[in-house]
């Protein structure tokens, strides 16, 4: 049984999303439902699932370094009523196995839960081969697969538990490194498809998900200090998109999407498509990667992609000044 104490909540973010997923969320998920099978492509240790080899050996399946087979095996398990959570690093679990995901999860709607470890820029100096900044776009191109990106340790646990009861295929995108900043300080309701307003603000609405939300909150603070009222929304679910939450915010002067991802094909595109249907709408600024970065530390990659608090705030200010001219 998970204890949502302040100390634990701090600890979980310290551990980081990957470790919390495997070492805290996974045992809890299995306590609730032993039909869950954690399927890994030689990443049991990387996913924090190593301890299951002793405590839940029948619920951990290692298929070796073979992601395409992992999706097929998971789909076969799902077709017989099991709940497979298949994981590897973001590019390997998406681009590498895209057609298998397309056939089994999207087309056949077999309820596999796919878990991307260390997506976004978390793999840092390992370089673009390991970075996850096209992964959400790949999955987003396939109708019907839910996409969920939690923001910190606690929300990773909440999202994983919610994913286990989600009726359908789902992509769980874990971002950030260890020592994640805490976004949610106490237990809260996490509902897939229901965005969470973290900060109120009337001028600008910053929409983001994952670890990068922390920088968005800091950017909003900077903007407020400069007289710009900026709100922040945790759009942890990219699909199904919470259009209701967006409808309520349409009065803003500017929508901003901030992504630890290519700014094409994912959240920014989804919001652009949503806005395109509205006759009276704010302009949209999309902040995110535009090309393959050179290998660097996580902090260095965040900085050079314009995703630091200063970088985000500066881009928003520039956009706002363009609007007022």
């Amino acid at each position: 049984m998970i204890n949502y104490t302040p100390a634990n909540i701090k600890l979980w973010s310290k551990l980081g999303a990957r470790s919390v997923y495997g070492s805290i969320a996974a045992p809890e998920m299995l306590e609730q439902n032993n039909k869950i099978i954690f399927v890994v492509a030689d990443v049991a240790a990387s996913a924090g699932l190593g301890r299951l080899t002793e405590s839940w050996p029948d619920n951990l399946l290692n298929v070796g370094i073979a992601e395409q087979n992992m999706i097929g095996v998971s789909a076969g398990l799902a077709s017989e009523g099991f709940i497979p959570f298949a994981s590897s690093f973001a590019p390997f679990v998406t681009a590498r196995a895209a057609d298998q995901i397309r056939m089994s999860m999207a087309y056949m709607r077999l309820p596999v839960k796919l878990v991307a470890l260390a997506s976004g820029l978390a793999m840092g100096i390992n370089g673009p081969s390991h970075l996850g900044f096209e992964d959400a776009a790949i999955i987003h191109s396939m109708p019907g697969v839910a996409i969920v990106t939690p923001a910190d340790g606690l929300s990773t646990i909440k999202a994983a538990l919610a994913a286990a009861t989600w009726d359908g295929p789902l992509y769980l995108r874990l971002t950030g490194v260890t020592n994640m900043p805490v976004i949610y300080e106490q237990d809260f309701d996490f509902v897939i498809g229901k965005a969470i307003k973290l900060e109120e603000g009337s001028d600008v609405l910053i929409i983001a998900s994952g670890a990068i939300l922390h920088n968005c909150l800091l950017a909003a603070k900077k903007l407020r200090e400069n007289g710009v009222s900026a709100g922040v929304m945790d759009m942890h679910t990219l699909r199904p998109l919470d259009t209701g939450a967006l409808d309520e915010a349409l009065g803003a002067k500017l929508f901003v999407t901030v992504e630890e991802h290519s700014r094409d094909g994912s959240l920014g595109y989804a919001i652009a498509a949503y806005l395109a249907d509205k006759s009276d709408r704010p302009p949209l600024l999309r902040v995110g990667l535009t090309n393959y970065p050179h290998a660097d530390t996580y902090a260095g990659l965040i900085e050079s992609a314009g995703l630091s608090p200063d970088g985000i705030a500066a881009q928003i200010k520039e956009k706002l000044s363009g609007l007022s001219r």
Binding site: Q68, V73, S74, A75, G76, L77
Partner: peptide, 25 residues
């Protein structure tokens, strides 16, 4: 007709998953 097919090479992986599932059950 257990699965959709047409994209080659995928049926045996599905079969492995089904075989594991049936053994578990």
């Amino acid at each position: 007709i257990e699965f959709s097919a047409g994209s080659l090479g995928q049926g045996l992986s599905l079969g492995v998953g089904v075989a594991l599932a049936l053994r578990k059950k």
